[in-house]
Nucleic acid binder design. Structure first.
Lengths: 171, 171
DNA sequence: CGGTGGAAGTTGAGAGTTCAAGCACGCTGG
DNA sequence: CCAGCGTGCTTGAACTCTCAACTTCCACCG
């Protein structure tokens, strides 16, 4: 990367200013370190990466502890392919079970098993602690609010456009 | 996850409040989507994931376009192992070359080649654009400043503690 | 009906990451 | 001077993720 030119030419890209660069580096550093940290914590304690844990959480919060594959994928912001592999693995662990969708023979539900529920119950405290220690305990209430707003803005800008608004089975 | 209990028992973990949960979800969503977005953009245009691109950038900024493996790993916040694999791949592409360290026979330098430099030059504009569109163009100056501060705080809390302050070859 | 396009989900191969182990070398104390 | 511990870096295997097919089924149109 470069510093912003004193006089910007039209064909020159708008480089990041020094200050923007510092912000961006901090973002990269923080997200890299944090993802790594949480992955390690959960891998060690619960035997799965952070994304997988997130999948279980979403299932646990859903009615009848189940979600259509596509719905779960969108909710977790991952591809269906990735989810397929993930669920296969979680199924092997006995934490998730697949069920056919009665109304659409192509459809599959991912269902949280009792074992899955139990794993979650057992490891949620440790995970929450990790998140608190790394994030919330270090930020003022204003910063927390700010972080929420900023992240919401960034996420909205990247959403596959109004996704989820048009799932037939939700209507 | 759960909502915060009305009366907190001492042995109950300090669950995230609803508001904290919303912030945390936004964080997860934004970072997942953004990492994915940048990875895809760079993979498509430059033929490498975002982390690898970051490695080239750090080398380009270093004196004599070279860095000791450990130094580079710390700077990028990744493990040495991961770096070893990454550099092996970049070497195959001809973008990085390894060089022995004269003063420490165990040591290795990763050196950015001319080809590597060129790849960077060619794809930096696209990358900066992507970052701008996804992040900076959507945030007010205050939010940018805030983001920088917050991320710096989080990153500092997770640093392997004062790392880099004790590299012998830096003294 | 029957065809056709699209949606749901899976699969396999290749690329990237992690983790534990390993090799080679530097450094320090006896 | 050399034994032994620590450092710098690499390696291989197991695991995860991506990308591009592919299968199956739904929905719509004539």
């Amino acid at each position: 990367m470069k510093t912003a030119p004193a006089s910007a030419r039209a064909d020159e890209p708008r480089w990041l200013t020094d200050e923007e660069q510092r912000v961006w580096r901090s973002y990269i550093d923080a997200t890299t370190l944090l993802e790594d940290h949480l992955d390690r914590q959960l891998q060690r304690d619960a035997g799965m990466p952070h994304v997988y844990y997130g999948l279980l959480v979403r299932l646990a919060e859903s009615p009848r502890r189940r979600l259509r594959m596509t719905e779960l994928a969108m909710s977790a912001k991952i591809t269906r392919s990735r989810l397929s592999h993930a669920v296969a693995r979680l199924e092997k662990n006995g934490w998730v079970r697949r069920e056919d969708c009665p109304s659409d023979k192509r459809g599959q539900f991912a269902v949280l098993t009792d074992e899955g529920q139990e794993v979650l119950r057992r490891h949620a405290p440790g995970h929450v602690d990790a998140v608190r220690q790394a994030v919330f305990d270090r930020l003022t209430p204003e910063q927390q609010k700010s972080l929420g707003e900023i992240m919401r803005i960034i996420a909205e800008g990247l959403q596959p456009s109004e996704a989820g608004a048009d799932l037939p089975w939700l209507r």
